Amino acid sequence: MLAEARWQLPPANALPGGIVAEQKPDGFRAIVFARRDLVMVQSRQGADLSRAFPDIARAARALGDSLVLDGELVVPVRGGWTSPHSRAEPVAEVAAPRRPL
């Protein structure tokens, strides 16, 4: 399910069933697949983002376990978050079908 834009979060206990809302930074939704011999950072649409985010691929490989991580790639900055969309090299140029790292 994709997130919906809202001006503010609902107050505590405002949602039924104890549902909790949290702010969603604008970044790249990504799934990281890692094994001993393969690491791939993949977009929601299936594009290979491994070369666009080599630091993420290296960190997943360094964990040494087989794993799948699903999350949002954002960049921490003083006072909040920034989007990887602001990177100098457009991700679309490096998110092309290639052999995984």
Rank of each mutant, 00 (worst) to 15 (best):
G27W: 13
L15E: 06
N13G: 01
G71T: 10
R6V: 13
V77L: 08
P76K: 14
S86F: 15
A30E: 01
R78M: 02
R61W: 13
F33I: 02
D70M: 10
Q8N: 08
Q42A: 15
R87C: 05
Q45P: 00
N13W: 09
S83L: 04
R51T: 04
G17I: 12
A62S: 15
Q8S: 15
S83D: 01
P76D: 05
S50H: 10
G46Y: 14
L15V: 01
E72H: 11
V75L: 15
P25N: 06
V32D: 00
W7P: 04
L15R: 04
P16K: 09
G27C: 06
R29I: 09
A60P: 14
G27K: 12
V68K: 08
S83I: 00
P84S: 07
L69T: 00
R58N: 06
A21D: 03
P10G: 05
P10V: 05
Q8I: 02
V74L: 01
R78D: 05
G18L: 11
H85W: 15
L38T: 11
L15D: 02
G18F: 14
H85G: 01
L73Q: 10
L73N: 07
W7R: 11
L67R: 14
A59M: 09
A59G: 07
M40W: 08
Q42Y: 01
A34G: 08
M40K: 15
L49C: 01
G17K: 07
K24A: 06
E22H: 13
K24V: 07
P54N: 02
R87K: 14
D48Q: 11
F28N: 05
D65F: 05
G27M: 09
A21Y: 10
V20K: 14
T82D: 10
V20P: 05
L63W: 06
A57L: 07
P84A: 07
L69P: 00
D65A: 06
V74D: 00
W81H: 07
F53S: 07
I56K: 04
P10L: 07
L9D: 01
P11L: 13
V75I: 15
G46N: 11
D65H: 03
V77P: 02
Q23R: 09
L67N: 02
G79E: 04
L38C: 11
G71W: 14
L38F: 12
D48S: 14
W7H: 08
W7C: 02
S50W: 11
V41H: 14
G18T: 08
A12L: 14
G46H: 13
M40N: 08
L49V: 01
E22I: 10
R36Y: 06
A52F: 01
Q45H: 12
A34V: 15
A34F: 01
V75T: 12
V39I: 11
W81Q: 02
R44M: 09
R51N: 08
S86W: 13
D26W: 12
S66N: 14
V20Y: 09
A30T: 05
R36K: 15
H85T: 00
P76Q: 10
H85Q: 12
A59R: 15
A47N: 13
G18P: 12
G64E: 07
Q8L: 10
Q23S: 04
A12I: 10
A14I: 04
Q42D: 00
L67C: 09
S66G: 13
P54T: 00
R61L: 12
D37G: 07
R61V: 01
V74E: 00
R44D: 03
R51L: 14
R58H: 12
P84R: 15
E22W: 10
P84T: 05
P25Q: 04
E22P: 05
